[in-house]
């Protein structure tokens, strides 16, 4: 799940300065679950913008907002409302905003800040779990990502900063990932697997240089 948060309304209004007719795109997946771009949030945003003197020509919920061909099709279905707008407000993650910018020619504005990839623990409570590093090592760390959940992203064991109550010295709200890994490995009698040296991750897989086609498509 891509976790996002809404930007302050003042910032969004600043973006929309000079554009009176707005079309809003939400997202059926992550932003709906996270409540930053589902049907209720999009409806509320339309109402708020109208209160601030804007004309909302229409809204739609991308299914999902990051599906380029799907978004193009949906925009065709909403042609009249879309055509009437000067600008597009996207209530999705950064990927959704960029997908909307690719799918059509009007200027887009992102209504949310994208935070991280995480799970939903309960409504409104999320936990960052994956950094999308492209070189998964969860096999060696009991399914607990030390790249993401250790504040320093350490791969060969903890630093000296584990507090007496098992937290990370960076924040009392954060469990020491290496302590979690140790406890899990100990539980399954597999501590020895933590003894092997883990080499540096390949940071040369820079965002932007990563393969753009995966799974059914052929990797380039």
């Amino acid at each position: 799940m891509t976790i996002s948060e809404p930007k302050p309304l003042e910032e969004i209004l600043e973006y929309l300065k000079g554009s009176d007719k707005v079309f809003i795109i939400g997202c059926s997946d992550c932003a709906s679950v996270v409540k930053t771009g589902g049907e209720p949030e999009v409806t509320q945003m339309a109402k708020t913008l109208q209160e601030h003197g804007k004309t909302v020509t229409g809204t739609m919920i991308g299914e999902p907002g990051c599906h380029l061909l799907g978004l193009k099709r949906q925009l065709r279905e909403n042609k009249e409302a879309y055509d009437a707008a000067e600008t597009i407000l996207v209530m999705s993650c950064g990927t959704g905003t960029q997908t909307a910018a690719t799918a059509q020619d009007k200027p887009v504005h992102g209504a949310n800040n994208t935070l991280y990839l995480g799970c939903v623990e309960r409504i409104g409570h999320f936990r960052e779990l994956c950094s999308a590093c492209g070189q998964c090592t969860l096999e060696y760390t009991a399914g607990i990502c030390s790249v993401t959940r250790c504040a320093k992203g350490l791969q060969n064991g903890p630093c000296g900063g584990t507090t007496a109550d098992g937290k990370c010295e960076v924040s009392p709200d954060r469990d020491c990932a290496w302590l979690l890994i140790y406890n899990a490995m100990k539980e399954r009698n597999a501590l020895d697997s933590l003894r092997s040296y883990r080499p540096p991750k390949d940071a040369q897989i820079h965002p932007g240089l990563r393969p753009q086609t995966t799974a059914e498509g052929e990797k380039k």
Binding site: N156, G157, P158, G160, T162, A164, G166, W178, L179, Y182, L191, L194, R195, Y197
Partner: peptide, 18 residues
């Protein structure tokens, strides 16, 4: 470096060995 007062010490020592 090593932290002899770390808890769990076993994990700290595993890193020291590395």
């Amino acid at each position: 470096v090593v932290s002899p007062g770390a808890n769990p010490l076993e994990l700290q020592i595993m890193k020291l060995e590395k």
